[in-house]
């Protein structure tokens, strides 16, 4: 686990920035994002639309919280959880051989491929470090108090 505060600050800005950008691109194109979700052929149309309307806001809010340094534990926990789900979806899609856009960045999305898998792994590494560093730093403070 990384403890260097400068590196963790970099992680916060990268993860927060990526999710703010990803969320905003989807907020302005909810139909496009709903279709991207439907293309995974896992969720019903109603669920796809519901997720398309809610997820981008979760991403923007958690991204902002990370960048501003507010509620870092909660925000990084939510984003880590969503990245785990995205990784699962990517793996399943690659196994099924579906050639679809990931829907990660709305109309600027890339195809679901191994590069996307790697990018998500890197982001998950960053966000998990943010979460764990917050938790352990506060635990150390509590123990020494």
């Amino acid at each position: 686990m990384i403890r260097n505060k400068h590196i963790l600050l970099f992680f916060r800005f990268v993860v927060g920035g990526v999710f703010i950008w990803a969320g905003l691109s989807k907020i302005f194109d909810p139909l496009g994002f709903a279709q991207n979700i439907a293309n995974y052929r896992i969720f019903s149309q109603a669920v796809s639309l519901f997720l398309a309307l809610i997820l981008p806001w979760i991403e923007v809010i958690c991204g902002l919280l990370l960048v501003l340094g507010i509620f870092r534990e909660t925000a990084s926990f939510i984003l880590s959880g969503s990245l785990v789900v995205f990784l699962g979806l990517i793996i399943v899609t690659l196994m099924r051989g579906l050639d679809i856009d990931c829907g990660c960045f709305g109309s600027l999305s890339r195809s679901v491929d191994y590069k996307l898998l790697l990018m998500d792994c890197v982001l998950l590494f960053f966000s998990l470090n943010i979460f764990l560093s917050q938790y352990s730093a506060k635990k150390r403070k509590q123990n020494t108090a």
Partner: peptide, 23 residues
Amino acid sequence: SSAGPLSLKKMIQRMAFILLFSS
């Protein structure tokens, strides 16, 4: 916010708030 580690209850409350607000 808390100076100590976040309790599970508080984290769930904050998560629920973010999810509800986003919805």
